[in-house]
Design a protein around this nucleic acid. Structure first.
Lengths: 201, 201, 201, 201
DNA sequence: GTATAAACGAGACGGTACGTCGCGTCTTTAA
DNA sequence: TTAAAGACGCGACGTACCGTCTCGTTTATAC
């Protein structure tokens, strides 16, 4: 993290405190909810002075983002979306997994917290885009590119639009509580996105 | 509204205070941002005691929702989406208008505020769904139903899914700041949603 | 009460409400203490609108004063201090009774409430002086005058000073919690006041 | 002060804030009166957060008590009542000074405030007794003891009663506004207390 | 008898202050 | 030098009452 505030020397940073803070933040937001998540609470739970948080993170949102990065840090880099050759099936598999995760109370609240912080903080949104969403989106686009090569997708597609066409409806329904998130809904979205709303010949 | 909290008598409610509060809330969230929006600030701006807010609204989010309802109250009821017979053109018109509104700083912050409150408050989400989103969605479905009758849409479509397929990507990109909101993007979404990702004939 | 605010017609005044308010005030101050005594609480306990209190009393203190007047109203007028011919014994009797009353939790708090309101409100003090303390003091002075006639008291005494010499130490110790209020203390005060601090021949 | 609430570390306490709070409290009670004295007002005048007051003082009364202690802190310890050998003259001197102080508007309101807080708060009364009234009373008793040694006072006197016999009437008249506080009244009280009410042979 | 005007209960209103929580900064002590 | 600890000025929270002000509803003369 070379762009961190230069006044502090990251070399001296306590790794134990960092992990304790991120773990505490993730757990707390799940337990007490986003509205009652406080820096003081995180510091107390982590057994850390408040200053240690303020020294290394500029906002509550960045702590949350780092917490998510730590959790997803293991499989980072080499992960890829499944590719059985059947795009529709593969997308349904992935979206069903997403549905399961969004329905899991351990992840629901923390993800809402991060999502709403992003909605109000452009800088955090940029960091999120670069470090979490960007890599994820690249994997998705890679899978779609493979489908294009296999002739299963139109060649003139804007892949960013395509990705949003598949994941956007689901995430929007989740965050806005626009309806139940079920495996069947995931399937519907995939089918409709692939076939379009118009009747097919 | 017979389900009003019984401890207060709505008959005695001051309509002037109600309007002042909703106006102040909407203006303030636009001026100082959601993070700095406070009940205290709303009360001060509206020239009203705090208790008058707490007496009639259970949360900041419900105040915001009512503020939106008041603003959109005029054209309520008889509004309808344009229907020129050309579904694609009509949807592009509507989505371009939505893009313009979401890019308007007067509406951007207030809408984000409401959207993120909804994301954290199921009760508010239900109220929003019933009083703002529901009627809006009905208009959208009505336009799609007309297109179905005209043979422009598949007959076996789940219209709720269809609506989300058109508006979901846009709203998700907006709220999560996933990319620029341009008229061209609106067009892309409409085209892709109608035609689907798969190659056509 | 002919000096009552002329804008209201006392003739129409509800005697039932008046009694309910005074009773509620006296009871409440005993139950919840002076600090938590509120007009709202009195009104609620009395089953009365707040305005009915504000209409007839200018302050909490005057309500308390009237409550005391109502309670002591029965034996008003013809009461007198005991006169057995033995001044010392009579004063001890009276002061022991006073000690007992001040130690009674039913009267302690209300009396403290009234006393401290008086300490901060000259108008209330004047009303108290005229309507409660004055008549009481007259009885005391009358008893002392009888003792003077009997040659038991110096003839050049300022009877107001004399009264305060007997009751002042007791009331001061009570209000300021300067020490325990016991019958023995009452006796000591009477003896010392009568004999003086100087050695007697 | 080892009995300080253990949750706060007195070592870290800001002496500047402490003095500012006590000064502000004393000044404010004199300016706006006891009824309008508020913690919020004290904090604002002192340039201090409310929490800093709540952290170190349990009640408004204890703040006032400490304010008095700070003011009387200078001459603490070595002070003594005048002793010219003439007890009556000395007591008149002291009581006239007391009368002057109680008539001084700078001290009247603050002293009433403290006195009435004490009347309603036994804990505060104990603290007052220990830290302000106790030492004062010791000085008074010391002067009376000297008079006893000089044969000017009865030897079997209860000195606590004696002190109250001299100061009680005065303080009671002051606090209850039972009459004017004049130098002549002070003289009367001293004379009557020394000689007693009974005629002297 | 009826009208009419007050006093009444109820309680909403604009305010002030309460006592608490958390913010982000700063200072002290120990490792 | 970093870290735990926590005091500090500050601002907002949600609550309790203040004293004022309508609201209908008794109620009790004055027509």
């Amino acid at each position: 993290m070379t762009t961190q505030r230069p006044s502090s020397n990251p070399a001296r940073r306590s790794e134990a405190s960092r992990r304790a803070i991120l773990t505490a933040a993730f757990e707390l937001v799940g337990e007490v909810g986003y509205a009652k998540l406080s820096i003081e609470g995180i510091a107390a739970r982590a057994g850390v002075g408040k200053q240690t948080i303020y020294r290394w993170w500029p906002s509550k949102g960045t702590v949350l983002l780092d917490a998510f990065l730590m959790l997803s840090g293991g499989q980072d880099g080499e992960a890829a979306l499944p590719d059985t050759g059947d795009l529709e099936a593969d997308l349904k598999t992935v979206l069903r997994a997403t549905v399961a995760e969004l329905n899991d109370p351990r992840y629901d609240e923390p993800m809402r917290a991060l999502a709403t912080e992003i909605a109000h903080d452009p800088e955090l949104a940029a960091a999120y885009s670069e470090r979490l969403d960007g890599p994820m989106r690249e994997l998705k686009k890679e899978r779609l590119r493979a489908a294009q090569r296999a002739g299963q997708l139109a060649l003139d597609l804007d892949l960013d639009v395509a990705v949003e066409m598949v994941w956007g409806p689901l995430l929007n329904r989740w965050l806005q509580r626009g309806g139940p998130l079920t495996p069947g809904y995931a399937d519907s979205v995939v089918e409709t996105a692939l076939n379009g709303l118009r009747p097919r010949g």
